[in-house]
């Protein structure tokens, strides 16, 4: 039985990793070798594709822009979502269920629906082509998701802890920062992971709301593709570099994620 499980899992993992391996391997090949034929390993190992990206400002600023607005988005989202999730997990208030549902619908509605007015709205308030603008736009789907996940974790913390703290003379902000947040550390880790993921992978809004100054790497990639044929090597290298930040993030939160998943709450 256990052997069968391991086998099945291995097959699935190979299925997951093979396309990524292919991309990685291609990023070390020159274009002529890529188009020359199929091989599992580069004949001549070259870093030219990566050099192109690191020396050309349109490429590397794309990365900096993406990282910058994703970080902003994480900060904003966590700041507003933590108290809100606490309110949802601890209190009944007027319209709470409807408010919660309304928040969720924003996670569910396609960005394409709001594309044109988004452009108009953000231009009219001067947020077009700024990092903070993209970060705010991504809050539309990340804040509801963060509230949803955090609410699940917070409901798992017994109420007695709150009550004891208040009896001991803690004020709400002090209790929240000193006692409550450390208790749900794993939950915050998992939430941060999901916020990062959805903001990092999103393209449609980020591309529409930027032109030059805050252009994300994903948009740089699509435009380069359409410009002058396809430079497969550089494209593959750029792809590999967009996966790296995700790997770094997941490495940092790995224990929280494992524990958060193990707690049975997502």
């Amino acid at each position: 039985m256990n052997k069968k499980k391991t086998l099945g899992l291995s097959v699935y993992i190979i299925f997951l990793l093979l396309p990524i391996y292919w991309l990685l391997m291609m990023s070390f090949k020159s274009n002529s070798e890529i188009l020359g034929g199929l091989s599992f390993w580069p004949d001549t190992f070259t870093f030219d594709n990566y050099m192109t990206i690191f020396t050309d400002p349109t490429w590397y600023t794309g990365y900096l822009n993406s990282i910058y607005y994703v970080a902003l988005n994480m900060i904003i989202t966590l700041t507003v979502a933590l108290p809100a999730a606490y309110a949802f997990s601890r209190y009944n208030f007027m319209g709470d269920k409807h408010l919660f549902f309304w928040l969720l619908t924003n996670r569910m509605s396609p960005p394409a629906v709001f594309l044109l007015p988004f452009f108009q709205l953000y231009s009219s308030v001067g947020l077009f082509d700024t990092h903070i603008g993209v970060a705010l736009a991504h809050c539309l789907f990340n804040v509801p998701l963060a509230v949803w996940i955090l609410e699940g974790f917070m409901s798992g913390v017994p109420r007695e802890i709150d009550e004891t703290a208040y009896i001991d003379g803690y004020t709400f902000p002090k209790f929240f920062a000193k006692i409550f947040l450390p208790l749900i550390r794993s939950g915050i880790g998992v939430t941060a992971f999901f916020i990062f993921m959805f903001s990092w992978v999103e393209l449609l809004l980020a591309r529409t709301l930027t032109s030059v100054d805050a252009k994300p790497i994903a948009a740089v990639m699509t435009r380069t593709v359409s410009a002058s044929g396809i430079d497969w090597g550089v494209l593959a290298a750029a792809g590999v570099l967009t996966i790296l930040p995700g790997v770094v993030v997941i490495w940092f939160v790995r224990n929280h994620v494992a524990k958060g998943f193990a707690l049975g709450r997502v």
Binding site: I13, L16, L17, L18, P19, I20, W22, L23, M26, I34, L35, L38, F193, F196, M197, W200, V201, E202, L203, I217, A218, M221, T222, W232, L235, A236, G239, T242, I243, G246, V247, V249, I250, W251, R254, V257, A258, F261
Partner: peptide, 27 residues
């Protein structure tokens, strides 16, 4: 867990790119 989470962190357009390359008959 980490390996499973990996595809989730690939930007949507790069997912397209990966399969665009992976699915081509020549390369």
């Amino acid at each position: 867990l980490l390996v499973l989470a990996l595809p989730l962190l690939v930007p949507l357009n790069v997912v397209g790119t990966i399969w665009q390359i992976f699915g081509r008959a020549d390369i």
